[in-house]
Design a protein around this nucleic acid. Sequence first.
DNA 1: TGTACATATTTGTTGTCGCAAATATTGCAA
DNA 2: TTGCAATATTTGCGACAACAAATATGTACA
Lengths: 164, 164
Amino acid sequence: MLNFDDPRLTAIGLLSEAYAGLMARFQPVLTAAGLSEIDFETVIRLARSPWQRLRMSDLAAQTGLSTSGVTRVVDRLEREGLVRREACPTDRRASYAVLTDAGRERLETVLPQHLQDIDDCLTGLLSMSELEAFLGSLRKIRDVVRPCATAGAVETDAEARATS
Amino acid sequence: MLNFDDPRLTAIGLLSEAYAGLMARFQPVLTAAGLSEIDFETVIRLARSPWQRLRMSDLAAQTGLSTSGVTRVVDRLEREGLVRREACPTDRRASYAVLTDAGRERLETVLPQHLQDIDDCLTGLLSMSELEAFLGSLRKIRDVVRPCATAGAVETDAEARATS
DNA sequence: TGTACATATTTGTTGTCGCAAATATTGCAA
DNA sequence: TTGCAATATTTGCGACAACAAATATGTACA
């Protein structure tokens, strides 16, 4: 007879609850701006990238979506005018997703409120040292479960492939 | 011009990466046992509940699924014989989802490996004090973002608030 | 008592995502 | 150069989940 209340299970349960709760908490602000969670992630990753662009496959690697998933997210964002596709000059198979001015503006609209949300439920909730420890633990976990997840980042690109 | 690399954003990004990575890491073992993530969560919550049963709506509250989502999860699990529905004697609108013996056996099959996975990527990765701090931070977050998420738990409801 | 409102669950509909297959292009090697 | 394996993206398809409507039942109040 096993113990269904094993501390390891409750640890994961707590993490799931906290994570789901955070995402649910962020949703209203994003929804009000007409962005789904994944829309927001896509758009901000583009905003962070050089020339506000990323290849579809790199976007897939960064977001964890399948490549077909990325195709459809970009379809939607393109339909809304927040992103446009641009052909890759050096590889005709590939295409870039590029953040448009409208996309950037949309992002700038939500960001302040979103940052406030994060502050309210995460960064502002813990002391400086607590937060540091928390993020440190998360990094340890991430490094174990996600060997290479920074595709498309210029400097890390070669490194990521090397470790593959 | 806003900063798209705000530490608050990277904090959330790190949390998302770690969480997604963990779930992806757990998936193979569960899939091998014919259980999806949500199947497993449903089944273990039933296993933890008095008389291995929970009302559909309580299951919804605990898992975060919509009630229609629970209907369909239980449909699938019932089709597989892991769960059965049972009428509630005191309220003819309600019904219980009850873990069957087969469901319990299935759970006992995966649990050891699943616990090992959790150990490998979370609980065994951090020192005792790190883990305690980590869980403490998660509790703070959860208590802010998820006021009451323990529906159907008889005694634990008050306790959950007390540990805040 | 009976009427209106609240609650529990299911069903219809729609949107999203992953997998596999299809298509286009590249790069390597004979 | 030609042919073949590898890579980038898109499309077809099936599974899953949320929302709203439908159904059944319970509860409270006039």
